[in-house]
């Protein structure tokens, strides 16, 4: 930080905005209008199949959400989904990153494998897991039967809990790599002196982990949290292909409901209101995360 305070040449402001100009132009040309428009639409009664009934209704769409069972149920499912996916992702990614941060034979191979799911489009991911979870011919059934863990083929996705957990598993597999890379990158920059010092203090492995590793990883961890929260809230492709939201409402997340409302029911107004609720929630959570960073004193922009 000391460098910055040394000298502040005039014109930094202008220069900075000039440097940002191309990005700002592209973003505002392409998404500022759609974003603004969608907010406006969220205050309309606007079903594409009834153009004549279109009118401005202020916040009525939002007010209606409070008694909208489909919305409330989807919100609950989403909250749980985010929690489960985020929890699994963070634990697995941290563990994998810790493993990858060690020296061992085959590390390169494992790192390559860790990148594999990243390369898979969500739709393909859904198709892959659908084949694996298939009730009649699925590989999971085959494997578990051959290992003697189940007697006969199971229909994994037919119970609400089952469908939910397996969908979360499929989602985690797909989103893991990004978190692993960020966390691994964070780990690789921990100065070994810190560990050495901790060793001098005769800290056990666990205390080294909680007192050195975790504090150092706070920043990358929070980036993972922000991005994965955003992703999990908007997860659509995999769920859509795997369960279509069922059985019942068990995997109908708010993102899925939103797509259905806009595209299948063509209710653009209500769907936009849903979307803005998602936006507000993600924003709140992200601001919460960032606030956490501020308190730790190492967030700088």
């Amino acid at each position: 930080m000391s460098v910055l305070t040394e000298r502040r040449p005039l014109g930094d402001n202008a220069k900075a905005w000039a440097l940002n100009a191309p990005a700002i132009v592209v973003i505002s040309l392409l998404v500022a209008y759609p974003i603004g428009y969608s907010f406006y639409v969220s205050m309309q009664r606007n079903n594409l199949k009834r153009p004549r009934a279109k009118r401005f209704i202020g916040l009525d769409n939002y007010k209606a959400l409070l008694s909208d069972d489909a919305f409330l149920s989807a919100l609950k499912v989403s909250a749980l989904f985010v929690l489960v996916v985020l929890g699994m992702t963070v634990v697995l990614a941290l563990l994998l990153a810790l493993v990858l941060n060690e020296r061992f034979r085959g590390r390169g191979l494992l790192l390559s494998l860790a990148l594999l799911p990243w390369a898979m489009p969500g739709v393909v991911n859904g198709l892959m897991w659908r084949t694996i979870f298939d009730a009649k011919t699925g590989a999971l059934n085959g494997l578990l039967t051959q290992l003697g863990l189940i007697d006969s083929y199971q229909a994994w996705l037919t119970s609400g809990t089952g469908a939910f957990l397996f969908t979360a598993l499929a989602q985690v597999w797909n989103t893991l790599p990004f978190s692993v890379i960020i966390l691994l990158a964070g780990l690789s920059t921990i100065p070994s002196e810190l560990y050495d010092a901790a060793t001098v203090d005769r800290a056990g492995a666990f205390r080294r982990f909680t007192q050195v590793t975790i504090p150092w990883l706070l920043h990358p961890l929070l980036i993972v949290l922000i991005l994965e929260t955003m992703n999990a809230f908007r997860a659509f492709d995999t769920i859509y292909v795997l369960t279509g939201g069922g059985p019942g409402d068990a995997t109908t997340t708010i993102a899925l409901l939103d797509v259905q409302t806009v595209l299948t029911f063509t209710d653009f107004g209500l769907g936009s209101a849903y979307a803005w609720v998602i936006t507000a929630i993600t924003l709140l959570i992200s601001v919460g995360y960032i606030g956490l960073l501020y308190r730790k004193g190492n967030f700088e922009v």
């Binding site: 298939d134 009730a135 009649k136 369960t243 069922g246």
Partner: peptide, 16 residues
């Protein structure tokens, strides 16, 4: 009635 029906789309039913 097969309980797996809940995870069957039309194509897998055809295959079965």
């Amino acid at each position: 009635l097969d309980p797996a029906s809940l995870q069957l789309l039309p194509v897998p039913v055809d295959n079965a």
